[in-house]
Structure formats: structure tokens, C-alpha cells
Design a protein around this nucleic acid. Sequence first.
DNA 1: TTGTGTGGTTGCATCATAAAACCAAAGGGC
DNA 2: GCCCTTTGGTTTTATGATGCAACCACACAA
Lengths: 155, 155
Amino acid sequence: MVKRTSFAGDACPIARSLEALGDWWSLLIIREALFGVRRFGEFQHKLGMAKNILAARLRSLVDHGILETAPASDGSAYQEYVLTPKGRGTFPILVALRQWSEEFDDRPEEIATILVDRAKGRPVKKLEMRAEDGRLLSPADTTLKPRPMPRRKSA
Amino acid sequence: MVKRTSFAGDACPIARSLEALGDWWSLLIIREALFGVRRFGEFQHKLGMAKNILAARLRSLVDHGILETAPASDGSAYQEYVLTPKGRGTFPILVALRQWSEEFDDRPEEIATILVDRAKGRPVKKLEMRAEDGRLLSPADTTLKPRPMPRRKSA
DNA sequence: TTGTGTGGTTGCATCATAAAACCAAAGGGC
DNA sequence: GCCCTTTGGTTTTATGATGCAACCACACAA
């Protein structure tokens, strides 16, 4: 097959995430959904994307359990797309992408918005990686270990 | 043009990040690079991707300032691809993707590796978003503000 | 009944991707 | 020197994905 390679069977969790989120539109759709967008037309208008692609992406996100369709909500007989907990769980990914752009973008002056703490109106801190005991970790302080085998199912 | 939409001029920092990293392979190439992979053939072998695509992606990552080519390093006359600081700055993105998969994947038993604190061998904590003063923030505790105008350049 | 808005699907042209063939330079054996 | 292999790509060609526009279906209103 020549089709776009699938990472579904890959053992790397990063590849597995990309299988669901790794195309050009999915994360932007989720971004809008996190802002409260729920309706097909609203996604289409805000993102300026083709309707067939939007329909395909929404279907894919629903299939992956990131969005689910809700029957109505404002009276009209149409359906809406709302984030599942899994979908809301992508928030750190979006924050990480945003912060990377804020830190390294070649034209930071073109960035329109900053993410702030609602209570104080001050920018949020950079995401930081910490050990279980709270020590701050750099990439070099980490390593990969094979996942422990599950206890229950086999010898 | 029908070509794949570019987010380069978009004002959203997430879209701007995706412009550089948002295709199927770039983040996986960066993942390998973070593990120390430097050579064309090694990327190609580990990722199992077509060589033309790899060449195109490496070029794109170099153009975006994420990788740079180094003349040699092990004696042979070939070039290597090493991460720039901007490239190493994607680490939180990869960690966020990994943790999302670890938390929400439908078949977590297929995930082969876990990211651990090298010193203790224990899993790293989930990335958390904090305010400047250290308060833990949930998505609902944040909001977007327009970026302040730059001081220097204009009235 | 005819409009109008929302929420899609279908057709077609074009682009990107993937696999494999091909190419070129650098060593290595002899 | 000569052939052969390894490394690092480019070219070729087929197919899947994308983007635009046109079309369709349903609900509701006049």
C-alpha cells in the first residue's frame, strides 16, 4: 500500500498520539473545541477549511474518542461536537505547542495572543517536567524504560 | 492553489508550530534525534520511512532551524543532522504527546516504553501548568489575551 | 410552495506521499 | 589500478489526501 503510513500499531506512545492528532487540522479543531466551538458551521467558519475535510476530520476525531456528538443543546435539530475527557486531555499538548512557538518563533511579533492565568492576567509558566518527588527534570535527566509487563493476564 | 494549506502567516502560535512540526514524520524524526540519532541512514532504518520523504523532511527541519547539518564527527566525510536549541525545545511537546497516549490510549498494553526519571527510575510526573506564583492551573483557569504591542519599534 | 440557512456529500483537479529504481561519492579488498 | 559494497541521497511513477465548488437533504419560515 502506498497510503499514508499508519502508526496505529507502533509501540511508541508518541507515534500513537500522532496517529490520532498528527494531521494538519485535528489539533486546530480541538483548539477551537476547547474554546467552546461545537457546531459544524462554526468550526468551518473559524478555521476556513473545506467542508469535506472538516467532516472527515470530525468523523475521525469521533472515532478516536476525542469528540462525541451530542444531539442538540440550543433547540435546533442539529448535532454538536463536544470534547470527551480524552479530548480535553490534549490541553497540555496545545500548551506545549503554543509555548514552543512563543519561545522560538522567528517572527514572534506576529503572534496575536498569549495564554494567561485568568485570575491574575499574567502569562502562565512554562510547562516543566518534574520527578515524582518534585525535582525539576531536564531532558537529560530522563530515560526510557521498557513498560513493565501486565500482572494479570499471562505467565 | 490547492496545495496543502500553510499556517505560516497565521497569528495563532499553535498553528505556527504545526507549520513546522505538524506533519506525520517531523516529530518522530525529532524524537530520534533527541535519542542521539544523527545520520541519514540511521533515521531511515529506525523510522522505516521512504528515503525521499526523509530527505525532504530533514531539509524542511533544517530550513525551520530545528536541525542543522554538521560536517562530520566520526571521521567519515558525510554530514550529520543535529538538533539546534530550537529543536531541543520541542521536548515538552513530545512529553505531552507521550503522556496523553499513556493516559488515554485504548490499548495501553501496546505501549512499549515509559519515560522515567534517570536518577530514581520512577515515571516522571504529568506535565502541569502553573501560574507565575506557582498555583496549579486547569484549562478553565486560563484565558487568552491579545499580545502586548512591542515597545521599541513604533509609536 | 418556494425560499433560506445549516450540515453535510460528491466530483474533479492538484498536491503530497510512498515504494522502488537509479545515481554518485567514498572506502575496502586485492 | 579495478571491482564491490556502503552511505546518502534523487528520480520516477502510482496512489492517496487535500481543496474548491457544486450539489443534496433536511428543518423551518413565509
